[in-house]
Design a protein around this nucleic acid. Sequence first.
DNA 1: ATTAATCCTATTGCAAAAGTAGTATAAAAT
DNA 2: ATTTTATACTACTTTTGCAATAGGATTAAT
Lengths: 145, 145
Amino acid sequence: MKFNTKTRYGLRAMVEIARETNNNGIFQKDISERQDISNKYLDHIIYALKVAGLITNVKGKKSGYILTRPADQIRILDINNAFEPGICVIDCIERNYKCDRENTCSAKKFWSGLNNIIADYFQNNTLQDLLEQQMELEKKETANQ
Amino acid sequence: MKFNTKTRYGLRAMVEIARETNNNGIFQKDISERQDISNKYLDHIIYALKVAGLITNVKGKKSGYILTRPADQIRILDINNAFEPGICVIDCIERNYKCDRENTCSAKKFWSGLNNIIADYFQNNTLQDLLEQQMELEKKETANQ
DNA sequence: ATTAATCCTATTGCAAAAGTAGTATAAAAT
DNA sequence: ATTTTATACTACTTTTGCAATAGGATTAAT
């Protein structure tokens, strides 16, 4: 049970973009350098985030990426959903999934309970939360040096 | 992000074993039939559960499997851990994982927060909870027919 | 001895994830 | 206008780990 790299990298990329949104944005290649992600692979990440409508580079190719809406209105779930159909820890809890056992399976209840708490966590955390956390961590780190 | 079939099947097998523990246990092949799992594949599941010390067939090969301890003392986490090293949604939150960013990465905080709530869920649910749920669901189903 | 069930290791098959390549395009700099 | 630089988009390759099967060994009851 591991989360995929696209969602992981996507999160980190979004934090970078969020922090530079009020400062003319950030280039893909700069995200690549700061986060140690191959620029070529990051291509896919950025592309998916753009298609999902979370980021834009409206002023042309050399303007850098910015968020399309405030960070507190971007849930982590939105970022996840740029790469995945949603949160689903096990196939049988999806709509339209047919299973003879579905009404008498305590395991299914267990898994759907798990799915709910994960989905809640993704709903309740926003990019703003991560951004604030990020700033705090960096401040702390600077103070230690 | 999907849970693997071993843990899924393992859960269902454990419920079957739990319900038959006070009744001379249950054979692997009967679990296989009741749960529609290939007997050959179930081999691995049962084996892992036995190695983990959760089940036994103490009276010999023809006695059927029973639990080694009461269902309320078997956490779902114990079952998970028969198949997995533990709960870990992303490599970088493991001990000994080296990353330059580790002290200043808000994403890591997010993921380890998620890991905690999942681990808690697995800790707080026991096989007894599933068993009771199971009995209730079956009673309800019988009433509907 | 034979049978029926488990025990245990090895191996195969396959699908999805991770990552690379390459061409097209578009804005900006010269 | 041409060159440069960065993104846009599709296709492809490589890798990995999961799911499942195979098969012989073992054990205990018939």
